[in-house]
Design a protein around this nucleic acid. Structure first.
Lengths: 353, 353
DNA sequence: CGGTGTCATGACATCGGTGTCATAAACCGA
DNA sequence: TCGGTTTATGACACCGATGTCATGACACCG
């Protein structure tokens, strides 16, 4: 690998002049510049970021820790949408910053986090983004001399800047929209009630009902998913939940599911009971996991989990923090996702009773 | 950030001795070692990989280029399973190598590849893995002084070491298994026929029929997906394909789909025609995209696209190449995926005719 | 025509580690 | 007790950039 000295020799100038051509930080004569550029091209010279980093004390690197890559989408604790889209958002947010992203994966084992963080510090990353696999609280190890950190899809109790989805609002808007389409009996089959998402979305569901003057019926809200990756158990749980709400005297006209995967499963289970979607009953999901929501037949009404936007926002916040902005917020920043209205929830035509 | 000199001063030894403690490459007295370790802990010293890289000429970095993160799973050219699992496999394969993975994403724009590769060379990566979004041929820019490269999920015409899925074998085994369960009329609704995967899998399908002594019926093989991301067009294409095979005099008892997403859509479309899965007709997929295959109801019989294994293998090949092994192969290495047998394809009970 | 800038360029030190070689101290067998 | 080896440690140079400062060549101005 050729160095700046090789280029200097070939172009018969000093290394410093080559540096000036590379960085354009001082005027260089036209003929000199051309000679240097020719030498660079001929030698295939590429500057060493290690040397540059050492001299300038700026690595141009940003570290991202995630479990995204290693977690199976099966993990039911995950909301269902590969949080890899958060990474995509981060990439977008950093696109014009000239920074290079160093991505490390925990392989689902959080005990690896400290070691990954250490690698980042060794590389003198200028900022760190921690991406959680689902909306939850985390607790990060504090390393000496660590750079600014931003949390995405999670929050901690140390007021670290955090970006999370606005789960409450998402479910609120969905139910509001469903009500606007004439529905009154709206079931909500939730994910495990140990998840923040479930707590928040249930609150949104209730608020939407209340704002529409509809009484809350506890019988319509059922936990229909299990933690862990036993899909058989999940299926049984959902089956039982469907049993429960379908057996009600005043049967719901819509079934909201905790995520799109549950909705997909519900399609099949309803069909197995000779219930047509959406003719006999409407189904809605959550996440807008498009591989599912946009390809199911009929296509699924759902709420977008704004992962890309969250990632972008996390990148912005991090760049700001790196620039010295005071980004300490008391509360996590909530990102709203849109309701995506598709064919699975038709307007309710009140038939003859 | 403290340096090795700060540590040396605090421990009252020379920087070189600190280096020895860090790397264990020469004996150090017990008391000296303890003093150094104490100083490291107190100062929170973390060595700079930039300085180490510069001196040792070894960065410990491996670059990975992918479009994985940015491609929507919607992209129908993609086989449907997020190729992010290839990245997971690579991470696994590198786990014990002590290398750090630098991941860059093309954002779906292949014109960015040269710039990403250049960034890799600037960081003096010791090897590069290129991950394609679906099985296909690629053509990579050759950079001066580039390190060993391994291709994953793609191949080129320059004999670059390449790891691809064994699509022919996968479909062969699936159809073989289906035949073993008593089926004779097996439809195959393919992805776009412009994909390598389609060509190879169709060959596998035909080989399995032939080996079982079943005549190939061209009417049973229909292209049922479009390139591009127009899901409406895809749905129409599948609907028409289903029309075609269901209208046949000797109706198929199984429908093999080009991927799991298509199978999922077929579930819905068949139900809309009052056809039960699997009671009236069996459905199989491809990819084992588990968020779909394992959660559909009934659960989907499919073929695993061995992405994790491919990634692991690519990492192994790269490490071997970096160690100087001669890895030039004439042909890409084929990785086989298992048939995953689930409820959507029951054994055919020959009823009274 | 001398003084004063401006422009283009180079010499040199420096960033933080580590390879090489030197050296002092400890050990060991005869 | 002494030469020879091993062990523990340090001095110094070097990896490849770039910041600082110096300098030579012109141009411009009065």
């Amino acid at each position: 690998m050729s160095t700046i000295y090789d280029v200097a020799k070939a172009a018969q100038v000093s290394p410093k002049t080559v540096s000036r051509v590379l960085n354009g930080d001082a005027p260089v004569g036209k003929k000199t510049r051309e000679a240097v550029e020719k030498a660079i091209a001929e030698l295939g010279y590429v500057p060493s970021s290690a040397a540059r980093t050492m001299r300038s004390q700026r690595s141009g690197l940003i570290g991202l820790v995630t479990g995204a890559i290693s977690l199976s989408p099966l993990d039911p604790a995950a909301s269902g949408l590969p949080d890899i889209f958060i990474v995509k958002g981060v990439q977008e947010g950093l696109e014009n910053s000239g920074k290079t992203l160093l991505i490390s994966d925990t392989g689902g084992r959080s005990d690896r986090v400290p070691s990954l963080m250490r690698t980042f510090v060794e590389h003198r990353v200028e900022g760190i983004i921690y991406v959680a696999d689902y909306h939850r609280q985390v607790s990060l190890p504090r390393l000496p001399g660590h750079p600014p950190i931003v949390l995405a899809n999670c929050y901690d109790d140390a007021h670290t800047p955090a970006i999370v989805p606005d789960d409450r609002f998402g479910q609120y808007r969905l139910v509001q929209e469903i009500i606007a389409h004439g529905h009154r009996r709206i079931a909500y089959l939730t994910l495990s009630d140990q998840l923040d998402a479930t707590r928040l979305r249930t609150a949104g569901y209730r608020a939407a009902l209340q704002d529409a003057g509809i009484d809350y019926d506890p019988a319509l809200v059922v936990v229909a998913d299990t933690l862990g990756d036993d899909t058989e158990a999940q299926a049984e749980c959902l089956w039982a939940a469907l049993d429960a709400v379908l057996a009600l005297d005043d049967r719901p006209t819509v079934i909201c599911c905790g995520n799109d995967r549950m909705a997909m499963r519900a399609y099949g289970m309803l069909r197995a009971r000779q219930i047509e979607v959406p003719a006999d009953i409407a189904v809605a999901g959550y996440d807008d996991y498009r591989a599912i929501s946009d390809s199911l037949f009929p296509r699924l009404t759902t709420v977008e989990l704004p992962y890309v936007e969250m990632g972008r926002r996390a990148a912005e916040r991090l760049l700001a923090a790196m620039a010295g902005a005071d980004t300490e917020d008391a509360a996590p920043e909530l990102i709203r996702g849109d309701v995506v209205w598709r064919a699975s929830v038709p307007a309710l035509v009140t038939g003859p009773s």
